[in-house]
């Protein structure tokens, strides 16, 4: 369905998968907040109008309605943008979705700076952190269209709430359709011995690019796609760092509270080693082209590479 290398916004894969699921399972219902054309939930609405509810520009209401619907036994998908679900409707998520542990799957587009041109109001760069601190929440960001499809399907079989973050803009397809995905299980994409790069979402393909360049410079990096940051796949991290002794984390998010924090917290308690986090550092981004923004905010392939060099250097000093 999705060809390796094609650039596809993961929101598109989400919309397609919803329809696929809708055909198989009549217990799936979808709520939308007047951006269905953009989140791609409208595709589901077109085929299943009776199971598609557009609540209007009212995300708090949307979230609480979803909780009520889930209490009636439905598998409920909530579509909107990441900023609105995680911030405007944050309390509804915490108190009425997570605390009662109902089956609401919050699938949100415009994660990170992927709505590049839209500017800060529409770029969610704190959402993973907010969601990660809520007890019982599962937090996911797939790296491409193939893994989006697999993880959205897995979400329907998962007991309890999920926050799944999608991209507005295209990201290259990096998986073939044979790869299998499990919520809470990272994917070892490339083996290496000198350093471990752990990436999430749209940054996974950037990590792969960085690895290619690094290998020409004599550094063999192991690359892990940590699509689920909560629950964190601790064993894949431990297995890798025991071999490499250093980590670079890469995320389209503030370095606080997201993937970098999750990995640092785990390693700090269990296996302290040099670590470098790539992501936004106490700053908002802005409007502009995606690649230019990555450069300006030090999240580009070059920045991943220099992060790796830093860690390798610190490893040597440690010895």
């Amino acid at each position: 369905m999705y060809k390796l290398g094609d650039s596809i916004p993961t929101r598109n894969a989400y919309g397609d998968t919803l329809v696929e699921l809708g055909r198989k399972n009549d217990q799936i219902v979808v709520f939308e907040a007047d951006i269905g054309k953009s989140t791609r939930s409208a595709i589901f609405g077109k085929e299943f109008p009776e199971r598609y509810f557009n609540i209007g520009v009212a995300e708090q209401n949307e979230m609480a309605i979803a909780a009520g619907a889930a209490s009636c036994g439905k598998i409920v998908f909530v579509s909107t943008y990441a900023v609105f679900a995680s911030m405007r409707a944050c309390e509804q998520v915490r108190t009425f979705v997570a605390y009662p542990h109902v089956n609401v799957k919050i699938c949100v587009s415009h994660g990170g700076i992927t709505p590049a041109n839209d500017g800060v109001t529409h770029q969610a760069t704190e959402d993973l952190g907010i969601m990660r601190t809520i007890p019982g929440m599962t937090v996911i960001m797939p790296a491409d269209a193939v893994s989006t499809r697999e993880l959205v399907i897995a979400a329907t079989q998962w007991d309890g709430p999920i926050y799944l973050r999608l991209t507005r803009d295209g990201v290259p397809v990096i998986y073939n359709e044979e790869t299998s995905f499990k919520i809470g299980k990272g994917i070892l994409l490339r083996e290496g011995k000198d350093i471990t790069i752990i990436a999430i979402g749209d940054m996974v393909s950037k990590a792969l690019d960085a690895r290619d360049i690094l290998s020409k410079q004599g550094i063999l990096a192991e690359v892990i796609d940590m699509h689920t940051i909560k629950p964190l796949d601790e064993s894949i991290i431990l297995d890798s760092v025991r071999k490499t002794g250093g980590v670079v984390t890469v995320e389209d998010h503030q370095v606080e509270c997201g993937l970098g924090s999750a990995v640092s917290e785990f390693l700090g308690e269990n296996y302290p080693i040099p670590i470098q986090r790539i992501g936004l550092r106490n700053t908002f981004a802005e409007s502009g082209e995606y690649e230019l923004l990555l450069k300006k905010y030090k999240m580009s392939v070059d920045d991943i590479i220099s992060g790796c060099f830093k860690v390798v250097g610190r490893k040597k000093k440690k010895r």
């Binding site: 219902v29 009776e50 708090q60 309605i65 909780a67 889930a70 009425f96 009662p100």
Partner: peptide
């Protein structure tokens, strides 16, 4: 989750009607 007979968790004000709408919608569906 704790009290038998309670149909939904509440306490943070303003949210109950939305939850009720979710239930009523599913009743219709």
């Amino acid at each position: 989750k704790k009290t038998p007979g309670v149909d939904f968790t509440t306490g943070s004000l303003g949210n109950g009607l939305s939850i009720g709408i979710g239930m009523a919608l599913m009743g219709k569906l």
